[in-house]
């Protein structure tokens, strides 16, 4: 092949550019995402706007829906109460409920974390085939409805339940396990453990156990290997798990209602009551928006945490 020949082929190519029907990887069409975006806007975005608008409306005469005029009363009710003479005074009732929901969710998150980390690491160190079986086993609870599983705990924990029967068999007095806050937390932890386990397992499966060997070699004891090398490597999974547990636990209402015996209020149970028994939609909407704001704050905190992870060179950014 001589020089002039090479030159001419290049010119030919320049003259009529070839058309290849091919999309470069990583440049997917935006239209493929359209259905999800439309559903998101219609069924998530619009309802949120409606709820926010409702929170500034008045209670409908019949109780269902909302009515004019626009008012800030619902928001004031979150913090203040008016007596019959029209005097307004501070009422911490809802703040207390809010706080109770936050720490119950936090406790649930902490307990699921303590249960999930060792289990996730254990699963991640099994032979591959057993590993996939165990992961599958962790999802078995999802096959049954949450409500049914919560009823099961009512049966286990009530005064004549299996737990108390066992306690009495040992000649001890039965415990008032149900209904209680204790039962609520048990129910929450039980339901949310898989949500903590699966993301942590994903991180643990990626963990290079040669790092643990290196740490031992450098003089680290077992405890130090766990705290200084293993746990930091699991951080992305832990963070994801915390979001997946804390956020839904904050607004949970099935467990507080069924296992807490509806005696102790949580944000979720109050919202539910406003829309049903109390028939006060605008106030229910206001509490919902407050919960939404609280959730966003929690997510923001996790986001800051994950951004710090990203700065540390972790590939996966959570938010």
């Amino acid at each position: 092949m001589n020089r002039s020949h090479v030159g001419s082929t290049i010119e030919e190519h320049a003259a009529r550019p070839r058309h290849i029907s091919w999309r470069r990887p990583g440049t997917a069409s935006p239209w493929l995402a359209a259905p999800a975006i439309i559903i998101g806007v219609l069924f998530v975005g619009v309802p949120i706007v409606i709820v926010i608008v409702y929170s500034f409306m008045s209670r409908a005469p019949g109780g269902t829906g909302v009515a004019w005029p626009v008012t800030f009363e619902n928001w004031q009710r979150l913090l203040f109460e008016e007596d019959f003479d029209g005097n307004r005074f501070f009422n911490p009732q809802y703040l207390i409920v809010l706080w109770r929901s936050v720490w119950t969710a936090a406790l649930t998150t902490a307990l699921t974390l303590v249960l999930a980390v060792p289990a996730a690491v254990w699963i991640a160190t099994r032979p591959p085939r057993l590993r996939s079986l165990l992961v599958l086993a962790a999802t078995i609870p999802f096959w049954t409805n949450t409500l049914i599983r919560t009823y099961a705990w009512m049966i286990l924990l009530n005064d004549q339940g299996i737990v108390n029967a066992a306690i009495q068999a040992f000649g001890l007095d039965p415990l008032a396990l149900y209904p209680s806050l204790f039962a609520t937390v048990i129910g929450l932890v039980y339901v949310f453990v898989p949500f903590m386990l699966l993301p942590i397992y994903t991180s643990a499966a990626k963990f290079d156990f040669r790092l643990a060997e290196a740490a031992y070699d450098l003089g680290a004891t077992r405890l130090r290997v766990v705290t200084r090398v293993l746990l930091p490597s699991l951080r992305p999974g832990i963070l994801a798990g915390c979001v997946l547990v804390f956020v839904p636990a904050l607004g949970a209402f099935i467990q507080p209602m069924l296992l807490g015996g509806a005696k102790v209020d949580f944000i979720g149970t109050i919202i539910q009551r406003q829309f049903k028994e109390s028939q006060n939609w605008p106030f229910g909407a206001a509490i919902s928006v407050a919960l939404l704001a609280l959730t966003l704050i929690a997510l923001l905190i996790f986001a800051v945490g994950s951004r710090r992870l990203a700065a540390q060179g972790e590939k996966a950014r959570l938010l």
């Binding site: 290079d208 790092l211 290196a214 031992y216 003089g219 680290a220 004891t221």
Partner: peptide, 16 residues
């Protein structure tokens, strides 16, 4: 291993 006064450079480095 953590009580031995030997240290190792690993094949895959195993940096934290």
């Amino acid at each position: 291993p953590f009580k031995r006064k030997v240290n190792t450079v690993f094949q895959a480095y195993a940096l934290f």
